[in-house]
């Protein structure tokens, strides 16, 4: 009984790790992109020519999720 409770399935732990990797990085980049995105949209509303710059600035923090995703892929 005790043994069963104490030891978790390694596959489950992996899955949790992968989930955390994607979930937390997603959360982090979301927080980072919040204000940048708002600012980019604001600038674009007045000057459409700023689309390119706005897009770049907005997606810069998004690399974190890709790292999370890669880590998750490597774990699972």
């Amino acid at each position: 009984m005790v043994g069963e409770e104490a030891i978790m399935d390694p596959a489950g732990l992996k899955a949790i790790g992968a989930g955390l990797a994607v979930g937390l990085t997603g959360l982090a980049s979301g927080i980072a992109e919040k204000d940048i995105g708002a600012a980019a949209i604001g600038a674009m509303a007045e000057n459409e020519g700023l689309f390119g710059k706005g897009l770049i600035l907005t997606v810069i923090p998004e690399t974190i999720v890709i790292f999370g995703l890669v880590v998750a892929l490597l774990i699972s």
Binding site: A38, A39, A40, G42, A43, A45, E46, N47, L50
Partner: peptide, 16 residues
């Protein structure tokens, strides 16, 4: 307050 949005937009308005 949505400072990021408004100030960025105002900056673009200023360039106009």
């Amino acid at each position: 307050s949505n400072y990021a949005y408004v100030t960025a937009r105002v900056r673009a308005m200023k360039s106009n």
